[in-house]
Design a protein around this nucleic acid. Structure first.
Lengths: 256, 256
DNA sequence: TGCGGGGTTGACGCTGCGTCAAGGTCAAGC
DNA sequence: GCTTGACCTTGACGCAGCGTCAACCCCGCA
């Protein structure tokens, strides 16, 4: 007759594991001796070893009991099902490895490569860091909702940067970032933006905005990044609104 | 301003996950509105997306917080550590797959291949099923404690089966299994066993028993399988003991 | 006013044990 | 007979990352 400790050591498991198996009914509770100790016989060791054999092969304990006395067909079926699950988990972990290898750090975390490229171009034409961060955050949101649309969006945005008017606007914004009290500069910036808005309207580029961004609340959310860039943005928004334009990420002409 | 549901849907996570991140301090608790609803801003979405990006790459949540504002060097170090852990887990699962593919079912569960072979030979010479089961269970215990010793043990046991005396003994045992009341048969079996014991003793085969099986309690445990085969085994043990021999798996000569 | 679809906190469940906590038991040495 | 140390007992929390009730509040709409 064995104590729990000897049983466990014969089977190569911990005492805690044995008690756990009792608790979940995998190993029957044996007789107790006068002092309450569990007393095991050799059959318990055999059963325990079999339990471990299955458990160490990745069989969930919940399935072990049925497997221990399953006929060959059921056994084989269960084994192949468990193997399937193991394969799935391995695939998941491999996917994790793939993703973790792609992770950039800090700024570029959660930002698709196309967006990183676009932000670099913005930086190259002298956009202020605050603007770039706002763009980055906004594109993080867009990428989370429509990851597949990012390449097209970015191709579009990069193409826009070829327009000298756009570059000039960013220059103005950059100067404004350093001297936001300059009212003439503010007006000049507003003019430049409206010029671009009107150009876009003339080319019909505003017409498919609704399809690209169908969610008004989401667009307001994106706008909030722009508003957070600098206090002067509020003034800018007012100036532009006075001239009948509303919105940053989806612009509309309204009665002034 | 967003409710928790919109926040979650923008970031592609469940509401429960967001609350969980609050609970573990990964995402700061936002302001509440008059009715107690949490009100989020766009920055919360960005942070949440970043958390998900890391979590979906297999980063444990406990590490996400530090990673979110780690410098590139620390970030890279953490990433490589996490990748190491992922590789370890993949190796573990692959080992599970390997083992599960090797699992026999029912009888052969937890029995090494060499033992299966030996049991088949026993069956071939006509050993009764009860004896084979007892052998099987005993070898399960031995294999659990000294798996590396099994091939040598089995080579030895298989070699023994070449001895006609051993084969004859199993024949007797087999007849005894069918007719345990036959006293003459019982005595003949005892004689056959003692003959083998003495032959082994003469060849010095009993001398290294202690080295092979140093644990007396363990040997008693193995013996208990033999005792459980059939009630007649008890009679057999007495008969043999009268002639000065004790034990099944490790035999000793004692003063009768 | 009722209904459906939000939101709130609190708590248990899952997996397979590890790890205290707070004791009772046993064999051995003094 | 007493201590010591190794072993046994039950009970309960902890772990990772949420899923899933339960029980209740809030809001807009017919």
């Amino acid at each position: 007759m064995l104590t729990i400790g000897r049983l466990a050591s014969y089977a190569g498991v911990t005492i805690r594991a044995v008690r756990h198996y009792h608790q979940i009914g995998l190993l029957p509770e044996p007789e107790r001796d006068a002092s309450g100790y569990r007393t095991y016989d050799a059959d318990a060791v055999v059963r325990l070893v079999r339990i471990r054999t299955l458990a160490e092969a990745g069989v969930p304990l919940a399935w072990v009991r049925e497997l221990l006395d399953a006929d060959p067909a059921a056994f084989a079926a269960a084994i192949s099902e468990i193997d399937r699950q193991l394969r799935t988990r391995i695939r998941t972990l491999r996917e994790h490895r793939r993703r973790i290898a792609l992770l950039g750090c800090g700024d570029s975390l959660a930002v698709p490569a196309e967006v990183v490229d676009y932000l670099d171009r913005l930086r190259a034409i002298g956009a202020p860091e605050a603007v770039i961060e706002a763009e980055r955050d906004a594109w993080i949101l867009v990428a989370a909702r429509w990851p597949e649309a990012i390449p097209a969006f970015m191709a579009d945005k990069v193409a826009q940067l070829a327009d000298p008017k756009v570059v000039r606007l960013y220059r103005l914004v950059s100067r404004l970032a350093e001297n936001s009290a300059d009212d003439a500069l503010l007006r000049e910036t507003a003019d430049a933006m409206i010029d671009l808005f009107e150009q876009a309207a003339a080319r019909g580029e505003l017409d498919w905005q609704d399809e690209a961004m169908p969610d008004a609340a989401f667009v307001r959310l994106l706008d909030s990044f722009v508003d957070g860039v600098h206090p002067a943005v509020g003034r800018l928004r007012e100036l532009i609104a006075e001239r009948g334009w509303i919105g940053w990420n989806r612009v509309e002409r309204r009665a002034p």
